[in-house]
Structure formats: structure tokens, C-alpha cells
């Protein structure tokens, strides 16, 4: 459903509030079907906020956006799809680990997608986020 909307009905994102309301509907569904996913996202958010110069905001296409010095380096949709920006060289390295995928929309960019589905995925999500954060903070 999420991927269908993102791929086929992408134009809807230009309607004000559509993406945020769509994300709220995902949250409602998660509350019923997989409430632990919401806790996992909260945990990731809580951990990232401990890192220096990070902040979170609403992502323009729905979900929580992670910023370093107010510039986005990742975001997570409420269904657990975590999108992170890397240099393409590092993305290639990470792809070899076999846990991440090309970004669900921008396949030829440095963006990657990782699906947080279980509690053990939280650690890997934080590992990925930390790597992206460190690249930003080393600049």
C-alpha cells in the first residue's frame, strides 16, 4: 500500500498536508497491527537526539526527519521504512552487508532504505544513522 502510493500516486504529495495525514493513517494502522513498531521508532528518535547538534522535525513526505545542524540526513516513515543519505561509495559498501536496499524512490542516489521490522533491527538502524551522522559531523 505504502509503496503503491509512493510510486503510483506520488503526485498527491504536492497537496498540502496530504503526506502528513497519510502518515497519521499509517500510525493508526500500526497502532492496531504492530504497536511495537511505533515504540521502535520512538527509541530510534530518542537515541539520535542524544547525539550532538541533532534535531528531529516532521518530514515533508510524512514521518520523522533527522537533522544534523538543521540539515536532513535521514528520515523514518511510520511504517518503519528508514531512509538515510550516504556518500555513494559508502552506500555501495553497505549494500554488500545485504541488509539495506536502494532507496524506495531515488534508486540512483546516495539514499538507502532499511526496513525496521523487529526490535533487533533498531540496533542496525542506529548503526546506519550513526555512520551517516559521523560523515556529516566530520565534514
Amino acid at each position: 500500500m505504502f509503496l503503491f502510493i509512493v510510486k503510483r500516486l506520488n503526485f498527491l504529495k504536492s497537496i498540502p498536508l496530504f503526506a502528513l495525514v497519510f502518515d497519521s493513517l499509517i500510525k493508526m494502522w500500526m497502532l492496531i497491527a504492530k504497536p511495537e513498531r511505533l515504540d521502535q521508532i520512538d527509541e530510534i528518535e530518542r537515541e539520535v537526539l542524544k547525539w550532538k547538534n541533532t534535531s528531529v522535525s516532521l518530514h515533508k513526505f510524512g514521518g520523522t526527519q533527522f537533522n544534523y545542524k538543521k540539515i536532513e540526513f535521514a528520515h523514518i516513515h511510520s511504517n518503519g521504512i528508514l531512509d538515510i543519505l550516504f556518500l555513494r561509495k559508502i552506500k555501495s559498501e553497505l549494500m554488500l552487508e545485504g541488509k539495506i536496499k536502494e532507496h524506495h524512490v531515488f534508486k540512483k542516489s546516495g539514499w538507502i532504505s532499511f526496513n525496521v521490522q523487529h526490535i533487533e533491527d533498531v540496533n542496525y538502524a542506529l548503526y546506519l544513522l550513526k555512520r551517516s551522522y559521523e560523515i556529516g559531523s566530520d565534514k
Partner: peptide, 18 residues
């Protein structure tokens, strides 16, 4: 109503965080 109240609550959460 539910969808927009929830959306508003998360917008508010982001607004009042800082």
C-alpha cells in the same frame, strides 16, 4: 476527525519540541 487530530498532535509535538 481522528486522522486530522492525530496529524495536529504530531505537528504540535514538533512545534513545541523546541
Amino acid at each position: 476527525i481522528f486522522a486530522f487530530v492525530i496529524t495536529g498532535a504530531f505537528i504540535g509535538k514538533a512545534m513545541f519540541r523546541k
